[in-house]
Amino acid sequence: MDAEISLRVDGQAHRLTVDTRTTLLDAMRERLGVTSPKKGCDHGQCGACTVLLDGERQLPCLALAVAHDGAEITTADGLAPPGELHPVQQAFLDQDAFQCGYCTPGQVCSAVAVLDEVARGWPSHASTDLTADPELDHDEVSERMSGNLCRCAAYVNIVPAVQQAGGRS
């Protein structure tokens, strides 16, 4: 069964026809040529495809495109105007927070959302006090980023990058 949907990806509007089985990730990568979100495990376990979907970090590999007609999506490629870097991207460069780079677009999108979630006062499993404002210490960053795997194990630099972008270095 086919369905016609609209998506807005990194500010650009698209209209396309998709099979109901098509995931949002495959629709972006294979139909729209948006290859910033990477296909890692395709089962929601690695976080390489993380994007901001309607403002929240989510996994397009576990989303049916047909169910997201009208969605607004920001990928790592659309975080900053062309030629510029988002502060999180700059922090990843400054801290050498990647090696092969395959997981990096997902890490960056996740980190942008983490800073937003912390600003909203959302607690995490690492928060000792559920009602206090969270601090961007090592354990908080590590826990909040646990949905983004890095097979090069650049975690030791990813944590400081997230802290730098969050104004704590």
């Binding site: 929601g44 993380t50 970090r57 989510q58 576990l62 607690p123 499993h125 559920l130």
Partner: peptide
């Protein structure tokens, strides 16, 4: 309940 929710899955999955 808050602790149980936060102990499950990841930020991305909990958002969905």
């Amino acid at each position: 309940l808050a602790q149980a929710l936060l102990a499950g899955a990841t930020g991305q999955l909990r958002n969905t």
